[in-house]
Design a binder for these strands. Structure first.
Lengths: 209, 209, 209, 209
DNA sequence: GATGAATGAGTTTTCATTCAT
DNA sequence: CATGAATGAAAACTCATTCAT
C-alpha cells in the first residue's frame, strides 16, 4: 500500500478519535488500530502525537477553506458569493462533523501552536468575508461609506454567527433547522442589515432613550 | 486563613491555569502552587480535578449570566435592553478573559457533564435574547410577523456573533476595537437588519440571480 | 470524661474499624469519628496508628487469654478443664467477632511487631493446652508414655482445629454448628483419640499397606 | 524474553513481596524491581495491583490443591489417602512458604473477591477430607454411624489442625518437628480418635463430673 | 480538650515512545 | 513494514500527622 494512502487513513482515524475522545484522552494505540496500521508505522510517518494532531488540523482547515473558497465563484455578485460561501460552510461542517469538532473545539484548547493554525484559518475566512462586504459596500456607493474597521467587525460577526448556527444545526438531529434555512436566516439579518446600514440608518444608544 | 477565602483563591488559580494550559495539561500541582496552598488542601476542599473544573465552570457561568441579566433592566425598551446586555457581555468577558476562555473553549471539550453546564448557560442567554427579539417583533406589529423559529435562529446568530467579537476584541491589545464600538457594530447589523426584516424586505437566493 | 473511659471507646472503635476495613484501609478519621472524639485527642492518647493497632491487639489478646484461663478452673480434672477452655474460646470469639478478626487476620499480616504479639498469645494458649494434655497423660499412667514433643504437637493441632472451627462457626449464621456442638466435635476427636493413643494403638503408615 | 517467562517471574516476585510486606504495604515498585522488570510492564501484563494479587492467589491455590489431589491416589484405602494428602500438604507448604503465607494470611484479609478464592480452595480441601472421612465411616460399618454434619466438622478440624501444624513446622528451623512427624501426630489423633468414635465411645460433658 | 487548617511523602496508574526481530 | 517487549516520566489522589486557636 502506497504511503500516501496509508497516511490518509491515519489522518482519518486520528481526526475521528481526536473528535470522539479529545486530544489527551485519544491514545495512539486507538488511532493506530482504527487506521489499521501498526503503531511504529504511525510514528514513522507522522513522528509524534503533536505532529499528528497538527497534521489533522492543517488538513481539515485547508479542506474547509477550500470548500468555502471554491464556492465563492469570482464572477458572481458579492451577495451571491457570500450566500454560496455560507452554504458551503454549513454543508462542509455538516458533512465532516469530526473534522469540524477538532477544528472548533480541540484545536483551540491544546496549546498555542495548534491554536495558531486554527486562528490562521479563521483569519483567512474572515478576510474573505471582509472583502465581500467591502466590495459590496463600494459597489453600492452608499450615502455613508463603510469604514474598513466596521467591515472587519461585520465579518467577524458573520463568521461567529455562522459558527454558532453550525453548532446549533449539528447539535441535535431534530432541534436545529435545515442547512439552507440556517444560511437564509443569517443572510437575511446580515445582508438586509448591511444594506440598510449603508443608507445611513444606524442604531444609536441615544436614539431611544 | 478561613476556608472561604482559600477556596476562592483556589478557584481563581484553577480558572487561570485551566485557561492557560487546557483541562488535561493543567496539573493539580500547578493549580495548588498558584493558589499558594498544598495539593492535599485543594483535594480536601474540592474533591477532585473534575469537581474543581466543574466548580470553576459553574462560578464563571453564573457570574457571566448575572452580569448580563443585571444589565438588562426590565423596564427599558427591548432594544435598549439588548444593547445593555451586549455591553455587559463584552465588558464582563473583557474583564475576565481566563474565565471566558474556560467557558468558551475548555468546558465544551471535556466531557458531557461540563458541556451540559455551559450549554445550559448558553441556552439561558439565547433564551434571553430570543425573548428580547420576539418582544420587539410583537411591539413593532410588522407586516410579516417573525416566526418563532426565526427568532431563535436570530438569537443564536447574535450570541455567536457576540462570542466571536468578544474573542476578536480580546485577541490582541491593538487589533481589536473598543468594547463599545464592538457592541455598536453588532447592534447596528442586528437591530437595523431585524427592523428591515419585519417590513418584509428579505434577501432570497432568487432575488438576484 | 475520664481518660480511661475515652481510651476504651477509642480502642473499641479502632477494633471495629480495623476488623471492617483492614489495617491499611482503616483511616484515623473514621476511627476518631466512631469513637466520638477528635483526631488530635486520639493522637494525644495513643500516639500513632501503629501504637493504636498494637494496643488493640494487646487488649484483645489479653481478653481472650483471660477468658480461656478463667474457664480452666484449676481443681477440675484435665479433660473438664480442656472442655471448659474450648467452650470459653468459642464463646469469646463468637461474642467478640471484631476482636477475633483483628487477632486472627489483621494482626498477622501487618508487620512483625504485631505478629509477635499474636504469636505470643497463641503460644500461651498452646502452652496451656500442652500442660492439660501432659497432665492427663501423666495421670493416666499409660502403657506408652506421651513424648513431650508429641504433647506440644497435639496442642498445636487442637488450637488450630479450634481456630478453624471458630471461623466455621462464625462464618455464616446458618451453615455453622452451635458453639457447644463445635466444642463437642473437637473434644470427641481429640480426647478419645488421645485416650486411645496412650493405650498404644497408633496409626502408622505401614499398618495398612 | 517471552511473555510467559516474564509473567511467571512477576508472579514469583509478587508472591514473595506480598508475603513479606502484606498486600497494602507491598508496593508495585518493589514487585517490579524484584521481578527485574519495569512497572509499566507489570501493568501491561497484569493490569492492576488487585489483578496481580488475584493472579497470585489463584496460582498458589491451584498449585496447592493440585499437590494434595495428586497425592491422594484414588485406589488406595481412605486412611492411606488422607495420610498421603496430609504429607503432600505439609510438603507443599514447607516448600512454598511465601505462597502459603499469602494464601493463609493475606488473601483472607483484603477484600471479598480474594477471600472468596481462598474460601473456595479451602472448601475444596475440606470437601476432599470430608469424603475421605465419610468413606471410612461407611466402610467401617460402625455401631454408631457418623452424622454428615459431624464428618464436616471433623474435616474442618483436621484442616485447621493441619494449617496450624504447618505454621508450627515452618515457624522456626529448630523448634518445629519434621514434616513426617507432624503428619504422624495429626494422623494419630484424628484417625485413632475417629476409629474409636465410631465404636460408640464418645466424650461427653457429663461423663466425668 | 476540641476544632479546623494544613502538608510531606508516598501510592497506583497511564502514556507516548523506542527498538529488536 | 508489522509485531511484541519494554520503559521514563508524570499525573491524580490519599493519609497519617501536626499546630494554632
Amino acid at each position: 500500500m502506497p504511503r500516501e494512502v496509508r497516511e490518509r487513513q491515519m489522518l482519518d482515524a486520528a481526526v475521528e478519535v481526536f473528535a470522539r475522545r479529545g486530544y489527551n484522552a485519544a491514545s495512539m494505540d486507538e488511532i493506530a488500530e482504527l487506521a489499521g496500521a501498526s503503531k511504529p508505522l504511525v510514528y514513522l510517518y507522522l513522528n509524534s502525537k503533536e505532529d499528528l494532531f497538527s497534521a489533522c488540523i492543517r488538513r481539515e482547515a485547508e479542506a474547509l477553506l477550500a470548500a468555502v473558497r471554491g464556492a465563492t465563484v469570482p464572477d458572481a455578485p458579492a451577495d451571491r458569493r457570500l450566500w454560496c460561501g455560507l452554504l458551503a460552510f454549513f454543508a462542509h461542517t455538516a458533512e465532516h462533523p469530526a473534522g469540524w469538532a477538532v477544528l472548533s473545539c480541540q484545536a483551540r484548547t491544546h496549546g498555542e501552536p495548534f491554536a495558531l493554525v486554527v486562528a490562521g484559518l479563521r483569519q483567512q475566512i474572515v478576510d474573505l468575508v471582509t472583502r465581500l462586504i467591502a466590495e459590496t459596500a463600494r459597489s453600492a456607493a452608499p450615502a455613508v461609506p463603510l469604514a474598513p474597521h466596521e467591515a472587519a467587525g461585520l465579518a467577524h460577526a458573520v463568521v461567529g454567527a455562522a459558527e454558532s448556527l453550525a453548532g446549533w444545526a449539528n447539535s441535535g438531529a431534530d432541534t436545529g433547522p435545515s442547512e439552507k434555512a440556517t444560511a437564509e436566516t443569517l443572510m437575511n439579518v446580515v445582508w438586509v442589515g448591511l444594506d440598510n446600514l449603508m443608507n445611513g440608518r444606524r442604531w444609536t444608544c441615544t436614539a431611544r432613550p
